[in-house]
């Protein structure tokens, strides 16, 4: 389950930058010029448009640089099609 981290952590000591893994359910996506909300409004520019077509003829987004993802969850929240979500990356061995 994605954490809800849009609340800013107050205690500086505890700040731990979380990293996200981005999942895209390509067949559900209605991306391309018509949508692309996740790409446009990701604060870290993690995503970009792809040339790939899904069965419905849309271009699902593609991950440009997952390391930048801070797991803010905005792409997931702004997606009208339940086609993208993020989960916390297991960074035990370092990310």
């Amino acid at each position: 389950m994605p954490l809800k981290l849009w609340r800013k952590p107050l205690d500086a000591d505890k700040i731990k930058v979380l990293h996200g893994e981005v999942y895209i359910i390509k067949e559900r996506c209605k991306g391309g010029k018509g949508c692309n909300f996740c790409i446009e409004y990701c604060p870290k520019e993690v995503l970009e448009e792809s040339e790939e077509f899904n069965k419905k003829g849309f271009h699902p987004p593609r991950v440009k640089d997952e390391n930048n993802c801070v797991l803010c969850g905005f792409c997931e929240a702004v997606c009208p099609d339940f086609a993208i979500f993020t989960v916390e990356k297991n960074c035990e061995g370092g990310c």
Binding site: C35, V78, P80
Partner: peptide, 10 residues
Amino acid sequence: DGCGNGIILN
């Protein structure tokens, strides 16, 4: 595509 209704549902 680009309709906001899905965001409201979300």
